[in-house]
Design a protein around this nucleic acid. Structure first.
Length: 552
RNA sequence: GCCCCGGUAGCUCAGUGGAUUAGAGCAAUGGGCUUCUAUCCCACAGGCCGGGGGUUCGAAUCCCUCCCGGGGUACCA
């Protein structure tokens, strides 16, 4: 409420000849719609008691939108708006702060030739919601994905695949059924990874295969039997990713394979040797210590770009492709400091690009026992098992098997916590219709929609001007929607939406417990409020990537 | 060692632009349904906000320090 803040500020200026930034906060609803603590801040410098200062301010504020002002507690000023302004706020849409901006959202980042695991579900849900938030603020959002289609994990998988095919016989891939491809490949990775640890000969063969894969890219080889196997299997991975994203309700616009950006990064780093980077022990490194960070290798002593150099290639290529105003990169927080070094390095020679990038580091997904999932070992939780476990829980607890509830449950569980820390996922809790869960909100929406469907005529809130006490509490909560979305967007923190929607549903359920809607004297007003309520639920859940059903 | 992230109710977590009595869900206890879909609501209970110091009229929130957990710390990503 900028206007009210300015009003208070000018009153303070007039009374005390002091400039102070006034910020209005949302107090406990019983106290009013807004509150400010300026009187407490000013009391000391004015040598007056805070309550006296507050009283003076209150006595001097005259504003057509304020219904009531009072001094409370040690000297807070509580402000209550006139009803029609509160209603106006309840109808307010979030500001289009990103209108006209091009935003690139990179998230999920699974590696071809490896299995999707629980962490990918999490990072996808998080990234997708952040992308939704930015899009809702008016940005032109592009969702992209980066993954390693070269490297040792590929060589390991290829080794096992060649064993299974009995040699370099690409036509034998036809024997693998479409539905089995994904499992077939991920088990090949596990097989290759295991033998790499156990068998010296196989290890050498895999190392050779790794070079062949790089060579295949260098030669743009699409025709040799080995290449045909590689490209076919790589495509199978991307097909599996597409299917996974489709199931989760998102869509990647473009995959950036590591092989496409490695050379770009390599040459950029080499150009900056002696300026940004330096040679040390045969490698090309960036000394982060002078920036309070640590040293990292960008090109190793064999001349191969590490992830750091490739990431530079990726950033440059992404910018070339999209000319973005903002690039958001969602990654695991174990990469946070490495990203900080990378960012600092880029800042040295591409300062504009560095300034346009925002990193969102997130924690790991843990199930009971808190086992870290690493697809490098065998002890991973595949993504599909997370979904299957939730489907099972939904069946056992609710005796239902609809995918919308399951996805709502998973997404909400993942998103309701602040991004950054590890999260502990409990499938049973996630599908519970009681408590702070996705299905609770989906049901809240369905229930309200059911009532609205029974009504003859639902009019817009803008026709409402007077609220009774109970309706006012409901409207007050509705009025917090736009500022909540704005905050979530600014911070790239979807959990604010979760917290708000849950509180909103609780406020409505309390209202509904004590008040009739249909058939009441105030039916028209209450239906209008409910209509806005379902709109907010539907939009808010949409920002989380969750579908709000008409019935359940 | 140094750096980053975290430590809030038995459990899972909000709150960390300073502010009125620290909140929610789950679990536990006691109530309320021939419903506008009770998958809900109400009540009660549960906290030296990791410890200690400091700044302030006021600190879970800011500063210092210590403890605990996780991660990073040169050729993996």
């Amino acid at each position: 409420m900028k206007e009210l803040e300015e009003t208070v500020k000018s009153v303070v200026k007039e009374l005390f000849d002091t400039n102070i930034d006034v910020s209005l906060t949302r107090p406990d609803p019983q106290f009013g719609d807004y509150a400010t603590n300026v009187a407490l801040q000013l009391a000391k410098q004015l040598s007056k008691s805070p309550r006296d200062v507050a009283s003076m301010i209150v006595g001097s504020i005259k504003h057509p939108h304020i219904a009531n002002l009072e001094v409370a507690g040690p000297g807070f000023i509580n402000i209550t708006l006139v009803d029609h302004l509160l209603i106006e706020q309840a109808m307010c849409q979030p500001t289009q702060s990103m209108a006209g901006k091009v935003v690139l959202a990179e998230y999920s980042d699974p590696n071809p030739f490896k299995v999707l695991h629980a962490g990918h579900v999490y990072t996808t849900v998080v990234g997708d919601s952040i992308a939704n938030l930015l899009a809702s603020a008016g940005a032109d959002v592009h969702r992209v994905n980066y993954g390693g289609d070269v490297g040792m994990h590929v060589a390991k998988t290829m080794w096992a695949i060649l064993q299974r095919l009995g040699g370099e016989f690409p036509e034998k891939l036809r024997d693998i059924k479409i539905a089995e491809r994904s499992v077939w490949m991920s088990s090949a990775y596990v097989e290759g990874n295991n033998i790499f640890e156990a068998n010296e000969d196989a290890k050498n063969e895999i190392t050779d295969l790794n070079k062949r894969v790089y060579q295949l890219h260098a030669d743009a080889d699409k025709d040799s039997p080995f290449a045909r196997i590689y490209w076919k299997c790589r495509q199978w991975s991307y097909d599996a990713f597409d299917a996974f994203y489709k199931r989760l309700g998102t869509q990647m616009e473009r995959y950036y394979p590591e092989s496409e950006v490695a050379d770009i990064g390599l040459s950029l780093v080499k150009e900056q040797v002696g300026k940004v980077f330096e040679e040390s022990e045969g490698a090309i490194i960036f000394r982060g210590e002078k920036f309070g960070l640590h040293t990292r290798v960008f090109v190793n002593k064999k001349g191969i770009p590490t992830y750091e150099a490739k990431e530079i290639g990726l950033i440059v290529k992404k910018y070339k492709d999209y000319n973005y105003d903002l690039s958001v990169i969602v990654t695991a927080n174990e990469q946070e400091q490495y990203m900080a070094v990378l960012s600092k390095a880029i800042e040295q020679f591409l300062p504009d690009l560095a300034a346009l990038t925002r990193y969102v580091p997130h924690g790991m997904v843990k199930l009971d026992g808190g086992v870290k999932m690493s697809s490098r070992r065998g002890n991973i939780i595949p993504a599909l098992e997370v979904i299957d476990a939730t489907i099972l829980a939904n069946k056992e607890l609710n005796d239902k098997d609809d995918e919308l509830t399951v996805l709502g449950a998973i997404k909400y569980s993942f998103l309701k916590n602040r991004i950054g820390g590890d999260i502990i996922y409990d499938p049973v809790e996630s599908v519970a219709l009681e408590g702070n869960s996705g299905p609770y909100l989906q049901y809240a929406h369905a229930r309200a929609r059911s009532i609205l469907r029974k009504a003859d005529n639902v009019t817009s809130l803008k026709n409402v001007s007077i609220l009774d006490a109970q309706e006012r509490i409901f409207a007050q909560k509705l009025s917090e929607y736009s500022e909540t979305v704005e905050k979530a967007t600014e911070e790239l923190m979807p959990h604010h939406i979760c917290t708000y929607l849950y509180e909103l549903a609780q406020v409505f359920n309390r209202f509904y417990e004590k008040n009739r809607v249909l058939g009441d004297d105030r039916e028209s007003t209450r239906l209008s409020l409910m209509n806005r309520y379902t709109e907010i639920l539907q939009q808010g859940l949409g920002l989380l990537g969750i579908v709000a059903p008409e019935s359940m």
